[in-house]
Write a protein that binds this DNA or RNA. Structure first.
Lengths: 349, 349
DNA sequence: GACGAATGCGCAATCGATTGTGCAAAGATG
DNA sequence: CATCTTTGCACAATCGATTGCGCATTCGTC
């Protein structure tokens, strides 16, 4: 079987005895073409196995035909970002758009040379030079989560009410009887993390519940985690609830607590701010907030597509466009249902 | 600031007083251009903030300028595939190639219309129609792992010696004293899974160690997992080692075993065939095989790039090109170091 | 001083499709 | 029957860059 050059529109035109222009109109549906000609061209196209060269079309239409997807560097939150990515891809279904991944180490100075029509960015970190460069290109950008202060504003954003979600989680722990809560929070400059932090602090002040933060740099290994939890329990023996912000970490905390002889949820309740594939399958399954990454990606992608289609005003009054995403709390066994069922560490009467 | 059309090569040519052709040669480095002209053109390009329109270039060069990345459908092995993806992206660094994600539900019939120069595919499943269609396009394809029998062969593949890796794991368990092993294996039609299965069976026959398979359909929830493990221990009380093939599952097994009062690794050893972010941070940390997904993606990507550059013979004698990847076993605390240290469940003398 | 080679650059074709303009034939209206 | 619209299609410009060819000019050598 000879390697045959793919058929071009010219080939189709020749075969059906019309001009290239007519062939184009016949196939694309627009313009004035007789039904009979249209059918003849369609037949020729089918016989030649013609598929339109999207590169040429995009050139003519002055579009790139793809959107760039930027994801944070570092190896955290893989589960989240993979789902997010699939969501973005889903948003381009049946549209003539492709999703291309932007290398994390792409030179920021060359950001303008990225041949894309717009960008979707997830969790922009204030310190990432490439992220800033992309936001400065002037092309449409939709971010998932807001960008930190000092970073050029995106065209639009998809975000969620993290303050409310945080309060929901904390209220939930409190109803389960929590009186002293620790929040394990990653040390990264992303707005949703700050939102969780601030909402936690505000809630603590308002509710008068003992609360402290434990910042985490990087991804701690098992021994380090053991040391951290051990130190924590020594310093604050009264801790009876833990909020894990990083996704996979909660399972590590859980097994470390068991190792140290603490029962979950009886002695200490656990919730994770980010749900993940492993959280529901450990014993006890860990309650978590479902950030709905796939939906977030889908919404961000769709928003960008609308912007590119010109269907959405670039700047509605009152600043950049923001779309809200509802989060879902998944109650599992690592939190106590009611305060009354709670067994304190001190022996009963 | 007015939205100004990006500068074209013609603009650069006009500004430096040369023809478009000369400007092109001056910037691309090829052809005969005087040093002085070259400098003048470069200056003009810099002033105009010119970046070459890669769409136009690709059209002229009859290339697509991107490679398509296909990943299996379903939500398993997220951690692995995300790293794999980053590896592929890394392979395109500094080359004029982008990585575009192929939607999992892309219509197989239109696979030929995908405007890419070649494909990288991970873990092709024999039942996926789109995967087959892609392999039939005739374009260069590099797969990670071999394709199942009956599926059109790819141009080249990156794979690993799963039989050897399996034996290594099993030998390791045996040295730790294992006498009755259970292998939890996902019910999917991918060659590496079959390789693990077959190697396990062969090893069992050769070594005379008791062994059984437990096929898993889908991703079991916590309660289901509990039931499975419970049933397993009831049916085979002598089980003293478990091999988990799916990645995140091992942590679920671990905590379920603890729940059931079995000590790991003293009563039952655990290893995971696929390493993941959570495995090292639970107590005890779970021994696992590092499949080196990033490296796999990188190698697959590089191989495809070589194929596209024509640097590698399409079909060396002896069938399709195959590159081997070394795997790494990470010994952790969920396996016993030596048989002598093993504590049996029956009380001591 | 003459002739061949090398150099520098402009011209124009080309990649493959889209789309505005214009002309001829067919149909509608008086 | 003459004029006015529509309809159907061909022509050619265009998107932005790459590249083969050919013409001057300059350089080198005898």
């Amino acid at each position: 079987m000879a390697v045959t050059r793919p058929a071009t529109l010219q080939d189709v035109a020749d075969r059906s005895g019309v001009s290239r222009g007519t062939a184009s109109r016949a196939l694309s549906g627009g313009g004035r073409v007789s039904a009979e000609t249209r059918a003849r061209v369609a037949a020729a196209a089918a016989e030649l196995d013609f598929t339109t060269n999207s590169g040429a079309r995009n050139l003519r239409r002055a579009r790139a035909g793809s959107i760039g997807l930027w994801l944070p560097q570092g190896l955290r939150f893989m589960d989240y970002y993979m789902n997010f990515t699939f969501g973005v891809v889903e948003a381009t279904n049946d549209r003539e758009l492709t999703v291309s991944l932007i290398p994390g180490d792409f030179p920021p100075g060359k950001a303008r040379s990225l041949h894309v029509d717009g960008f979707v960015m997830a969790d922009v970190d204030g310190h990432d030079e490439l992220a800033r460069a992309i936001l400065t290109t002037g092309r449409p950008v939709v971010t998932s989560e807001l960008v930190p202060p000092g970073v050029p504003a995106p065209t639009a954003s998809v975000t969620a009410d993290h303050a409310a979600a945080t309060r929901l989680l904390l209220d939930r722990l409190r109803r389960g009887g929590a009186e002293s809560i620790v929040v394990l929070i990653p040390d990264i400059d992303q707005t949703w993390v700050s939102a969780v932090h601030d909402a936690t602090a505000a809630w603590s002040a308002a509710e008068g519940v003992g609360l402290s933060f434990l910042p985490l740099v990087g991804v701690p290994a098992a021994t380090e985690l053991h040391r951290i939890v051990d130190g924590l329990l020594a310093a604050r023996p009264d801790v009876d609830a833990i909020v894990c912000v990083p996704d996979g970490l909660a399972v590590g905390i859980l097994s470390t607590l068991r190792e140290l002889g603490r029962a979950v949820p009886e002695d200490i309740q656990i919730v994770s701010y980010v749900d993940g594939a492993t959280l529901p399958i450990v014993q006890p399954p860990i309650s978590a907030l479902d950030l709905r990454p796939r939906e977030a990606g889908l919404r961000a992608g769709r928003l960008l597509v609308s912007l590119l289609d010109g269907g959405v005003p670039r700047a509605a009054e009152g600043g950049p466009l923001t779309e809200m995403l509802d989060l879902e709390y998944h109650e599992r066994a690592s939190t106590l249902p009611e305060a009354s069922t709670r067994r304190r560490r001190e022996p009963g009467p």
